[in-house]
């Protein structure tokens, strides 16, 4: 058993995936708690599709993908936030429109210039081979930024998530914190989407918080539990994907599904016992 792990982590690409994956799982779980509670779960999905489109264009134009995708997705995040707060098109419809529109745009651009190929499927469903060393460095820096900002503004993020009106009344600039959450989510999604895949990355945002909410009843415990759970599921998924040669993204999501079912049954059983 130990030998397998030693062998597994002797590969550079797995080590890179491990570092980026753990950091991204941590960030997305923390932000996910706030996004899920604010009814913004779909924004994660929308952003990842925009990210796919940005990666496709970066590939067509031969530019380093992260440098294109991060600014584009950050801008999209602010737009989505604006649309869900006010505007003539309802928030959920706007997200559906933007995500399918962006996906189509990306597919269109690639197929015109390079034809449908393996790269595209790896963007959609993720690939563990996608990252090089410079990506890893960038991921580490940005993840640390996300974690620090989340920790510093933890109390304010709680207040804005729990009750925006009260937060505003006590002089907290709620828009600024909504924008902060959107910005951090955008960065996290782009960092994680090449390993997890554009279609699967949003699961990292919704699953760990939702699983944790089945059992834990305070905000702090939900945040801590989803962070741990998310990292645990990622590690499990990574091992499974190595042992059985399954795609990493899908394996991580499978681990998250199992964790959710497990937490859900515990919560269900506990409520039953209480009567």
């Amino acid at each position: 058993m130990l030998a397998i792990f030693v062998e597994m982590f002797s590969y550079d690409f797995i080590l890179r995936a491990l570092i980026v994956g753990v950091l991204v799982s941590l960030c997305s779980a923390l932000l996910g708690v706030s996004l899920v509670l604010k009814r913004y779960s779909m924004i994660g999905d929308g952003l990842s599709h925009v990210g796919f489109s940005a990666l496709a264009f970066a590939m067509v134009l031969n530019i380093a993908p992260l440098y294109v995708a991060i600014p584009v997705v950050v801008v999209a995040a602010f737009l989505l936030l604006r649309l869900s707060e006010n505007g003539k098109i309802r928030g959920d419809a706007a997200i559906a429109m933007i995500s399918s529109g962006a996906l189509a745009l990306g597919v269109f651009a690639i197929s015109i210039t390079k034809g449908m190929n393996v790269d595209m499927s790896s963007y959609m469903f993720g690939s563990i081979l996608a990252m090089d060393n410079s990506d890893v460095v960038l991921s580490i820096c940005l993840s640390i930024m996300v974690l620090c900002l989340f920790a510093i503004f933890y109390n304010r993020i709680f207040a804005v998530t729990f009750d925006e009106n009260f937060a505003r009344a006590t002089g907290i600039n709620a828009e600024r914190y909504n924008a902060l959450i959107a910005f951090l989510s955008a960065v996290t999604i782009v960092l994680g989407m090449r390993m997890m895949g554009a279609l699967l990355i949003s699961s990292l945002i919704v699953f760990p918080p939702l699983s944790s909410m089945q059992i834990f009843k305070t905000f702090r415990n939900v945040v801590l539990s989803s962070a741990l759970l998310s990292v645990g599921c990622f590690l499990l998924g990574l091992c499974v994907s190595y042992l059985w040669a399954t795609p990493t993204g899908a394996s991580v999501v499978m681990a998250n599904i199992l964790a959710f079912l497990f937490f859900y049954s515990i919560g269900f059983a506990r409520d039953r016992m209480k009567g």
Partner: peptide, 26 residues
């Protein structure tokens, strides 16, 4: 300020202590 209850709060995991303490933010 004591606002009208919003939908979000009905399934929000937060302890009484966390909610009360958040009033001190200002």
């Amino acid at each position: 300020y004591l606002p009208q209850q919003t939908n979000v709060q009905k399934d929000f995991p937060a302890s009484v202590w966390e909610v009360v303490l958040s009033g001190c933010l200002n």
